[in-house]
Amino acid sequence: MFVRLYQLKSLLNPSLKTWGIYCFLAIATPSFAQETPQQRLSQFFNWLNKPAQVPDEGECFDGEGYDITKVNNKCLQNYLATIQKTGLFSSVYIKHLKAEFAEIQAIVAKKDTAERLSYDRYFLSQDPPTPAQMLYALKNSSSTKIDKTKAKVTVNVKKPYKYTLIYNFDLEDSIWKLTSIESKE
């Protein structure tokens, strides 16, 4: 790196040395995320606030109540492709979701019944808050911890009831992407 800087300096006339050093530093410095994990989470909640854009995984399963007796594989592939296109979900999240769906398919293939989720996947609740309530909580009652390429955004929800959601992010290609969601009461 020292050689490259020396060569760069020797190519520049004195008035451009500062500019050359700046360019070298810009090239040599690793890129960082353009948005914070909180901003990405805000985008996630805004995406959820547009139901026409959010696919319904429940449409991919047939059965009664919480029992799944048939899986529409094409629907699941479309579901996965749609959420992947948002750019909000990490490769780890997508991998875990594919494994979850594969497990359901294996159970149904054995002529057994699998169980549907009995709660909202993104808010981990049977009676989830609205995305607007989550945006309010994110703005007014949240904290963020970043450790290199991992981040954790803790959102303390107070309405419609009190509970805490933890959104975990990974930095992929300089973009914070959702990896997992946890709750604690």
Score class of each variant (00 low, 15 high):
K9E: 04
K9F: 02
S10I: 03
L11R: 00
N13G: 09
N13K: 05
P14E: 01
P14T: 04
L16Q: 03
K17N: 10
T18A: 06
T18F: 04
G20C: 04
I21S: 07
I21T: 06
Y22G: 04
C23L: 12
F24D: 04
L25H: 05
L25G: 06
I27D: 10
A28D: 06
P30E: 11
P30Q: 09
S31E: 14
F32T: 08
F32P: 00
F32E: 13
A33P: 07
A33G: 12
A33L: 13
E35T: 00
T36G: 09
P37W: 11
Q39K: 06
W47P: 00
W47M: 06
L48E: 01
N49Y: 01
P51V: 04
Q53T: 02
V54I: 08
V54N: 03
V54W: 02
P55H: 03
P55M: 05
P55K: 03
D56C: 05
E57M: 12
E59P: 02
C60S: 10
C60Q: 07
F61C: 08
F61L: 12
G63F: 07
G63R: 00
E64V: 08
E64H: 09
Y66L: 15
Y66S: 11
Y66R: 02
I68W: 05
I68R: 00
T69K: 09
T69N: 14
T69S: 14
K70H: 15
K70F: 15
N72C: 08
N73H: 14
K74Q: 15
K74W: 13
K74E: 15
C75Y: 11
L76F: 03
L76G: 05
Q77P: 02
Y79I: 05
L80H: 02
T82P: 01
I83S: 08
I83R: 01
K85S: 15
T86N: 06
G87C: 10
L88H: 07
L88K: 00
L88W: 08
S90T: 10
S90R: 00
S91I: 04
V92R: 00
Y93R: 00
I94P: 01
I94M: 12
K95G: 14
K95P: 05
H96E: 14
H96Y: 12
L97M: 12
L97N: 07
L97G: 07
K98A: 15
A99E: 15
